[in-house]
Simulated assay, not measured.
Amino acid sequence: MLSYWEKQSLLRYDVIIVGSGITGLSTAISIKEQAPRKRILVLERGLLPTGASTRNAGFACIGSLTEILSDLRHMPETDVAALVQMRRKGLQLLRARIGDDRMQYRENGSYELIGEAELPALDRLEAVNSLLSHILPGPAFSQADDKLPTFGFSRESVRAIVRNNFEGELHTGLMMRTLIDLAMERGIEIKTGCDVTSFEEDGDGVHVLVNNLLRFSAGQLALCTNAFATEFLPEEDIIPGRGQVLITAPVQQLPFKGIFHFDEGYYYFRELNGRVLFGGGRNLDFEGETTPEIALSARIQQDLEEKLRTVILPGREVTIEDRWAGIMAFGRNKQPIIKAVSPRVFLAARMGGMGVAIGSEVGRSLAVLMKD
């Protein structure tokens, strides 16, 4: 039972955004920047963002060497370069909007561990640098084999190291906390625990049913739920992909800092307050990890532990302190989806596991598309 006042003043907005992750909040902030008087509502099904925005490893990535080489086997060079450029622009926008200090952004370096089978990738390093030379202010990659003795990785598994000169790391929790604060400072309303059951569009606008109870209305609706967008638009090429992570207790005399990748970016780890945060392994079981279920797989967690103890910290005893999972979104190609579904309904999804890097730019692009 709703009062006249509630129906008149508390359920109507100019824009409703579904999803309070990086893309949803970035879309809302970008709309406010171009139209400060618009009333914007962000709806989040969970008490916290549900997908990957608060569950990632805090990598500010543009892509590792072997990942880019893998992309070049399946995509034209121009498309690969455009993706790297989007990641770079997204990170620049995120840093300008938030400020490095407010999310502990720092560039201690990004490194890729090269195994025996990947050594031929080194022969193409300069070609990739040339491909990206118009995007970055200097060479993207350089060899850093001098770090091998210092970092202490298994010399049987790691034969070379490549440095990415334009990647960084950040504190995911502080990044999201600041995005929430910025949104609220601009008058954007965020309501959590709001499961969007359905929506319908008519001549008056878009009407959004929440928790099978409340019906909000707006002139425009933006779906920014990444992998979960198929609940509303099942025809879209959006495939969920689970990412699993573990973090150790503090490790005495940890020999490395910064962020690291190996195996075409399918594995990633970093130093975090003296701990090792290590995630990935989705390629070990693509079928099983193509799921929207936020859960842990014993097989992948065991694989992460094994690689932690044999490749990253060989011969060291470590204690696992915590584990979690998040849901990413992929498709037949790596381009994000940014489009109008109808005159009033818009979609931004399929971040390809790069939401930290591209989420801000995707949100800005969607806001431009929605500008009326």
Rank of each mutant, 00 (worst) to 15 (best):
E6H: 09
Q8N: 14
L10Q: 15
G24C: 02
S30E: 00
E33I: 01
E33Y: 07
A35V: 09
L41G: 03
V42Y: 02
G46A: 07
A52R: 07
I62M: 13
I62G: 12
L65S: 05
D71G: 10
H74C: 11
M75F: 13
V80S: 08
A82W: 03
V84L: 11
Q85G: 10
Q85S: 15
R88Q: 15
K89P: 05
G90I: 03
L93S: 11
L93E: 13
L93N: 12
G99W: 04
M103K: 01
Q104L: 15
E107Y: 01
S110C: 11
Y111I: 04
L113A: 10
I114T: 07
E118K: 02
P120N: 01
L122W: 12
S130Q: 15
P137K: 01
G138Y: 01
A140T: 07
K147A: 10
P149G: 04
E156C: 02
V158I: 08
R159I: 00
T172A: 09
T172V: 10
M176Q: 11
L179E: 13
E189P: 13
T197N: 12
S198N: 12
E200G: 06
E200T: 12
G205W: 04
V210T: 03
T225K: 01
N226A: 09
A229G: 02
T230W: 08
F232G: 05
L233I: 06
P234S: 04
E235P: 13
P240C: 02
R242N: 09
T248Q: 02
V251A: 12
Q252R: 14
P255I: 02
R270P: 04
E271A: 06
N273G: 14
N273W: 13
R275H: 00
R275A: 00
F278H: 06
N283D: 13
G288C: 07
G288Y: 05
T291L: 01
A295P: 06
L296K: 08
D303Q: 09
L304Y: 06
E305F: 00
L308W: 02
R316V: 05
E317I: 01
T319Y: 09
T319K: 14
R323I: 06
G326Q: 09
I327P: 07
A329Q: 08
K334T: 09
K334D: 14
P336R: 02
K339Q: 05
K339S: 02
R350F: 00
R350N: 03
M351W: 06
G353K: 04
G355T: 04
I358F: 08
E361S: 09
G363K: 04
R364K: 11
R364E: 09
L366P: 05
A367G: 06
A367C: 08
